Simulated scan of single mutants.
Amino acid sequence: MYVRLDERYRVTLTLNGRERSAYAEPRTQLCDFLRHSLGATGTHVGCEHGVCGACTVMVDGRATRSCLMLAVQVEGRRVETIESLAKEGELNDLQRAFREHHALQCGFCTAGILMSCHEFLGRVTDPSEAEVRDMLSGHLCRCTGYTGIVQAVLAVARARQNNRQETP
């Protein structure tokens, strides 16, 4: 199939629980589509090579580097960005833990890290420090040294574990 690179295609997806549509050229990166076409500016673009992790979003429930995916590849799919975590203006438990444990400084990488942590805690309910550090190895942060991030993730995991045990 021949695709003209100067044509624009309608891309319809579920973004943070709402169906959204916009037009994109075939070579438009998902991160640029989210920011410029759909206004989801919480997704940051860092290296554009999949190395830094700043652009991490969830695609169909999996943490994904949005700089390595084209907008046309999310047709009909479910995408969650950092904007999906806070509900009605209230930070979720992971975001609050980042604040409490000083897990962010400049904040540029934070959105991507939070999305990876969100996906990770959905899969691993009782992580070890080594597992958290391994998950974070795909993210570059020049400010924090990762200690606060690790502490925040472990604190959320413990709190969620306690909530599960207290709920009959």
Rank of each mutant, 00 (worst) to 15 (best):
Y2N: 10
V3I: 13
L5C: 09
L5Y: 12
D6I: 09
E7S: 13
E7Q: 14
E7I: 08
Y9N: 07
T12R: 13
T12I: 12
G17H: 10
R20F: 10
S21T: 10
A22I: 03
Y23I: 07
A24I: 02
P26F: 01
T28G: 06
T28F: 07
L30F: 04
L30I: 02
C31A: 15
C31L: 07
F33R: 02
R35H: 06
H36Y: 14
H36I: 12
G39C: 09
G42D: 08
C47Q: 03
G50A: 03
G50N: 04
V51F: 12
C52K: 00
C52L: 02
G53A: 00
G53Y: 00
G53C: 01
V57Y: 06
M58V: 09
D60P: 13
G61R: 12
A63V: 15
A63T: 11
T64V: 12
T64F: 07
R65C: 12
C67D: 00
L70N: 05
A71N: 02
A71L: 02
V72K: 03
V72H: 04
V74L: 04
G76M: 11
T81A: 09
I82F: 08
I82R: 06
S84E: 11
L85Y: 11
E88A: 13
G89P: 04
E90L: 14
L94S: 03
Q95D: 09
R96K: 10
R96P: 09
A97D: 05
F98Y: 06
E100D: 14
H101T: 07
H102M: 09
A103F: 02
Q105D: 01
G107L: 04
A111C: 08
I113D: 00
L114D: 07
M115F: 07
S116I: 11
S116N: 12
H118P: 09
H118R: 14
H118E: 15
H118Q: 10
E119A: 15
E119F: 10
E119P: 14
F120I: 04
F120M: 05
F120K: 05
G122S: 08
V124K: 07
V124Y: 06
T125L: 15
D126A: 15
D126F: 14
P127R: 04
P127C: 05
E129M: 06
V132F: 05
M135Q: 06
L136M: 09
S137F: 01
S137T: 02
S137M: 00
H139D: 03
L140H: 05
C141G: 00
C141E: 01
R142E: 01
C143N: 01
C143G: 00
T144V: 00
T144A: 00
T144R: 00
T147Y: 13
G148R: 04
I149Q: 03
V150A: 04
Q151K: 12
V153C: 01
L154R: 04
A155H: 02
A155K: 02
V156I: 00
V156W: 01
A157H: 01
R158T: 05
A159W: 05
R160M: 03
R160S: 02
N162V: 15
N163W: 09
P168W: 09
